[in-house]
Structures are given as C-alpha cells and as structure tokens.
C-alpha cells in the first residue's frame, strides 16, 4: 500500500498527489512513469512521475480524470492509499543542452512535460514553456513552470487567458519571430502532438513527443502498447515513452487507443462520479 501524503485539485478534474514511494523517488528520472492500481478489481494505469523528493521519500503524480479509473483515482484524498505503485518504468528523457528548448503541454500533458522541462533547464537550456488549456481554469502548473523556465506562455482555446488559440499558434509565433529553437518537447492529446510535429518539421527542429497508448503490464511483456515509429513497431513502455515526433505514426496510435472505446464508455457511465462535488469542496476550502 502506498500512502497519499497530499492531494489537491489543480484544475477541474486534474488532481496532484504526493505519494510515499521512497525507492521510486530515489531512482526516477525525468520522463519515467509509474503504474498505479487502486484496488483488487482495478486497472493498471500508467502515470508520469511529475516530481519527486528524495528527502521525503515521495513522488508526485498529476492525474486528469477522463475515464472510470482516473476519476476514481481522483476521489482519493490525503491519508488514503493506492494499492499498487510500480516503477520507475520506461526510459528517461534524453536531456542535453540543446540551446533553446521549448516544452509544450496540452491539458494534463503539461504535468507530463513538467519534469523534463525542469531537467532541460538544469542542463543549461534556455527554456520556454507553452501551457495549453481549453480555458483559463485548465491552464495548470503555471506558477511552478515560471519558477524553472525562462519564458512561460499560457494559451487558451477560448482566449480567456494568455494567447488566444492553440499551442501550435504560439509555437509558430515564437519560431517566426526569429528565436532560434533547437529542441521542442510536446506532450498532450494526440492531435496536438501531431500538429506540433507538422509545425517543426519544415524547420528541421528536433521534436520529441511522449506517447500514451493503452498499457497493461508496462514491462514489455504484452505488446499491447505497441506503436509504429519510423516504420518500426516499438513497445512504448520499454522503448519509450518519448519518441521522435517526426517519425511517429500518430494516426495509428489514435486508432489503437479506440480499441476499448465502448467498454470504457459503459464503465464510465456506470461510475457515479462525485468529482464535481469534490472539486467544489476543494475550491471552497
């Protein structure tokens, strides 16, 4: 059992947890993830390690409630336990001093990109962060990113905060304004990552994305997480999760992620969700 030492909502349906897991905290590197299972009947859910504290022996995960299990995860509170947490899994991000590095997060992708952005800064890069959200309340981790990045640009689809438009619009502006961009990391919904890849492709900017196929074991044992990168089949859990954005077959990934569409929907419909109530409580406190 893994104790939750703190839990708080960052945005609607987006919750941050600090969990006691000293071994993982000591080992993990930016870009790696854990698999969480909350009960004996539960699914194994991959979640990126957003941060860790070796002193406190904790790791931080940030979870977006989009389906049955992620919403159930988000019903957990400080003092509760997760049944299983295993990791750190996957290959760490490749970090070097590229020069100017832009990290782009869409929705909860910002949380996934956060540790790598931090590591890029520590490696000496000039770091620019673009945080995408539907509207203002979905722009997460701005304060935390401002502490570690040289420039931070929130963007919202509805223009309620920051740049009005998609992250790709802002990225284009940055590139076209003459800033020499050497590296781009993009993490978010598949269409966003695909769009970013198309923006940087003509400029030949090295671009990395973190893929999120459906996983089971996370140890390379099942092949369920396979994707095609550069014409080769890869197992994202052990060969990734980060890959060269210009080589990834995003269309295939999108199709494969639909495999359990109808089962997921029926599970979610059955799950009487009290997230909204919790969120209301959280912001009233």
């Amino acid at each position: 059992m893994f104790k939750i030492v703190s839990a708080e909502f960052l945005a609607p349906e987006v919750k941050r947890f600090e969990i006691e897991a000293p071994k993982i905290a000591a080992k993990r590197k930016a870009g790696q993830f854990v698999i969480v299972r909350i009960s004996a009947h539960g699914e194994r859910i991959p979640l990126t390690i957003a941060d860790s504290s070796v002193e406190r022996g904790t790791i931080t995960i940030i979870v977006q409630g989009i389906g049955k299990t992620t919403r159930e995860i988000n019903e957990h509170k400080t003092g509760d336990f997760f049944m299983d947490v295993v990791g750190p899994l996957g290959l760490p991000s490749h970090i070097e001093n590229f020069g100017t590095a832009v990290s782009i997060g869409g929705g909860v992708g910002t949380a996934i990109a956060f540790p790598t952005a931090k590591a890029l800064k520590e490696a000496g890069n000039h770091t620019i962060s673009i945080i995408g959200g539907k509207s203002k309340e979905y722009v997460i981790l701005e304060k935390e990113l401002r502490e570690i990045c040289d420039e931070v640009y929130p963007t919202t689809d509805d223009g309620s905060y920051g740049y009005h438009g998609f992250v790709t619009g802002k990225l284009k502006d940055i590139i076209e304004s003459g800033t020499k961009v050497d590296f781009v990391l993009a993490i978010g919904p598949i269409p966003m990552m695909k769009a970013v890849a198309e923006v940087t492709r003509p400029y030949g900017i090295k671009t990395v994305v973190s893929l999120n196929p459906v996983m089971v074991d996370g140890t390379g044992m099942c092949g369920g997480c396979r994707a095609v990168v550069g014409g080769q089949t890869v197992f994202v859990c052990v060969d990734g999760p980060e890959f060269d954005a210009h080589e990834v077959d995003f269309t295939l990934l999108m199709k494969r992620n639909n495999t359990y569409r109808s089962e997921e929907k029926s599970a979610l419909d059955k799950h009487v969700c009290n997230i909204d109530k919790q969120f209301a409580e959280a912001i009233n406190n």
Partner: peptide, 22 residues
C-alpha cells in the same frame, strides 16, 4: 497471446465490468 491472456487471467477481464480491465 500474452496481452490477451494477461487481460483475461491476471486482470480478470472475463469478469468485466466487475473487474475494470476490458
């Protein structure tokens, strides 16, 4: 086969939706 059997055996997908993994 590993994925199919792991879903069914380890994750008990044959009892979906009582178990969460489909």
């Amino acid at each position: 086969a590993n994925e199919f059997l792991t879903r069914v055996n380890l994750m008990k997908a044959y009892k979906f939706p009582e178990y969460d993994t489909p």
